[in-house]
Design a protein around this nucleic acid. Structure first.
Length: 696
DNA sequence: AAAAAAC
């Protein structure tokens, strides 16, 4: 056991205890708290000191003992000490707080235990099912605070493993789920809707309008002039104009490049890249930048086209409509016919352009064709696999794909790490049709003989370029190798690769696993058609934290990206100390906390999330108005993905990147590769520009 | 170099 665990235990021992012997809840909002509950959670943007002291029930930020007064003077020291406590408290302390009281709850429920077992599985179902809600309603009275329910769920989740076996009994229920699936989303995260938003027509159509503007990049010229007004703040003004000048032609270059993409010039390079990947050689940036040849779909061409026109069946089309996808977006219109035709497909659509449905809908349709009478056969092996680089993204994808699958009687299951095996293994034993997961656990279950991929005839890699990164590539290769080569009908099994930054980095996978793939992208999807305003602030290192605090103090939802887990945690801590409702998301948190913390942002209970790059790709949160990069991204791809968390659904977004003086060149290179124009402006605490950006 | 992804 790690040393800090001892510390946590010690602290727990120091804690006030309940009559039942468990540590007392520190918060009045906690179930385990016995005193009268004086305050309901507030929806205000800020907490005062007292609230902060007692808000542990909010979860994320570890609780500080109520009796431990805090003031500015103590802050630093406390923070230092907390750094340690934090992880413990975060994960353990917090959970423990939840559990202790729960156990008492359970004691109360002792007679109901059997019911409980039943419930556990439902919770799983809950992810997808309305009925559960009713269960929840029933439970509500038991809880002291409704606000705590989300915590419970996650908690329950951890416990679910053993209960899973009950699930078998519920099989019949599952079918009920089909009808309810769509509702589920309303409840939990609304995730599907979010996806819908990603895909919403308005946006795309806007793009249509914007596509032509692309050429107007010169329109930006006026902007630049505007910026010229800000000139005094800029760094190296001299260089800027030049960059911009280069860029205007660039957009045209892009068009010129189109023909290049059609050239099969990439192929030799792919082979090289593959060899390089095998030898552990990391391709240089310019190799990654190499555009894959792609067929560009023009948004205007898909106007008036329906999912049915593309070959999607009635049930699925109706479900898509219920989810808000009434008509296909360009990337969907581009890739769906080819997927239905049985081809391998590479799809590049920018962040929030509807990629999930672009592969999800035709995948389900395709399984219907393949499926025949094997549907719902107990213990049937999965026939489709969707892999994503993070657990949160896998969950989000499942929230979109599951209702589509259910609409035609197919089942999905999530296979990802950080949660008990039992439930996942149980689902596999019962039989599922579509696996949505992350590479590690999929590989794990495969090796344990619990997951048979030999009948998988459609495999999808979301964020495919990232899945080719060191550390991902080998597991992914192993997994893909375990899938079927041909369908029962003798057709070639399909592989679909999608990403907003799909490039030659996937070359090795393509050459090894894909057969004459069709490559699609959408015309006009460049930064000039984006709704995102990019800014770069050049700050003194020692002033950075203060500038960050000022930036996130605004009212809008904000995601802050930090390079390391420790820094993310520290920043979240600092923001909380400043009275800003903030939480964190990174790999040092256990999965229930990760899920919960993300939920805190989506639900609006906090409006600042400090994350590592775990949140950079694919994660959709409604109405994020500001993305702050506390540390510059690694490369232009990271920049594009991080910034893609805002400006979604056609809304305005702002991305602010902080860089120390010494890193100016690096960020300029990144911006150039990303084909983004942004001024570098010197800024410090209290500066007008900081306040202006914070106000967005 | 860090982060992610299995335990």
């Amino acid at each position: 056991m790690a040393p800090y665990d001892k510390g946590a235990r010690q602290r727990a021992d120091d804690r006030v205890r309940h009559p039942n012997g468990t540590p007392a809840a520190r918060s009045s909002k906690h179930r385990g708290f016995r005193a009268a509950d004086p305050s309901q959670p507030r929806q205000k943007q800020r907490w005062d000191a007292e609230e902060r002291r007692g808000r542990s029930a909010q979860g994320e930020r570890p609780a500080r003992p109520n009796w431990e007064p805090r003031d500015g003077g103590q802050r630093r020291d406390d923070r230092g000490a907390r750094g340690f406590d934090r992880n413990d408290r975060g994960a353990r302390g917090y959970d423990r707080d939840d559990r202790a009281p729960r156990r008492s709850d359970r004691d109360d429920r002792a007679p109901r235990r059997f019911e409980r077992d039943d419930r556990a599985p439902r919770r799983d179902d809950r992810d997808d099912r309305a009925p559960r809600r009713f269960d929840r309603d029933d439970r509500a009275p038991r809880r002291f605070d409704r606000d705590e329910r989300p915590q419970r769920r996650s908690f329950d989740r951890d416990d679910r493993a053993p209960r899973r076996f009950d699930r078998d009994d519920r099989a019949p229920r599952r079918f009920d789920r089909d009808d309810r699936a769509p509702r589920r989303f309303d409840r939990d995260d609304r995730a599907p809707r979010r996806d819908d938003r990603d895909d919403r027509a308005p946006r795309r159509f806007d793009r249509d309008d914007r596509a032509p503007r692309r050429f107007d990049r010169d329109d930006r010229a006026p902007r630049r002039d505007d910026r010229d007004d800000r000139a005094p703040r800029r760094f190296d003004r001299d260089e800027r104009p030049q960059r911009r000048d280069d860029r205007a032609p660039r957009s045209f270059d892009r068009d010129d490049r189109a023909p290049r993409r059609f050239d099969r010039d990439d192929r030799p390079q792919r082979r090289d890249a593959r060899d390089e990947a095998r030898t552990g050689y990391v391709p240089a940036d310019d190799v990654k930048l190499e555009k894959l040849q792609a067929e560009a779909t023009i948004a205007a061409d898909v106007e008036g086209v329906s999912f049915t026109d593309l070959g999607i069946g009635g049930n699925i089309s109706r479900t898509l409509a219920e989810m808000g996808a009434t008509s296909p977006f360009p990337i969907q219109a581009a890739t769906i016919p080819d997927v239905l035709a049985g081809k391998d497909v590479l799809g590049r659509g920018r962040t929030g352009s509807g990629k999930t449905i672009a592969f999800g809908a035709p995948l389900v349709e395709k399984l219907m064709e393949h499926g025949g009478g094997t549907k719902r056969r107990m213990g049937r092996a999965p026939r489709a696999l969707i892999l994503a680089p993070t657990r949160e993204l896998a969950l989000q994808i499942d929230r979109t794909v599951q209702p589509i699958a259910r609409s035609v009687g197919l089942f999905t299951t999530q296979i990802y790490g950080g949660v008990p095996y039992g439930r996942q293994e149980g689902a596999l034993e019962r039989g599922v049709d579509i696996i949505v997961g992350t590479p590690g656990r999929v590989q794990d279950l495969m090796n344990k003989g619990k997951l048979d991929l030999s009948e998988v005839v459609v495999s999808v890699l979301d964020e495919a370029d990232h899945m080719c990164d060191l550390g991902f590539l080998e597991p992914v290769r192993e997994i893909l190798s375990a899938t079927a080569e041909v369908t029962p009908h003798g057709d070639r099994a399909q592989k679909l690769l999608f990403s907003a930054t799909l490039d030659a980095q996937v070359a090795s996978l393509v050459s090894e696993f894909l057969h004459e793939p069709s490559v699609h992208e959408v015309a006009g999807e460049d930064q000039a058609s984006s709704t995102i305003d990019h800014r770069v602030l050049v700050v003194e290192q020692r002033q950075k934290d203060q500038v960050l605090e000022e930036l996130v103090a605004g009212d809008g939802k904000t995601i802050v990206f930090a390079r390391t887990r420790a820094y993310a945690e520290r920043l979240a801590d600092q923001f909380e100390d400043a009275g800003i409702r903030a939480t964190s998301l990174h790999g040092d948190l256990n999965q229930s906390r990760r899920t919960r913390n993300l939920q805190l942002l989506t639900s609006g209970r906090v409006n600042v999330l400090v994350a590592t790059d775990v949140a950079a790709r694919g994660i959709h949160v409604d109405d994020v108005s500001l993305v702050v990069q506390a540390d510059a991204p690694d490369d232009y791809k990271a920049y594009l993905h991080r910034s893609g968390r805002t400006g979604r659904a056609g809304k305005q977004g702002t991305v602010v990147t902080l860089v120390p003086r010494g890193r100016r060149r690096k960020i300029e290179g990144i911006l150039e590769n990303a084909e983004i124009e942004a001024d570098l402006v010197e800024a410090g605490p209290g500066d007008g520009i900081v306040a202006e950006l914070a106000a967005r």
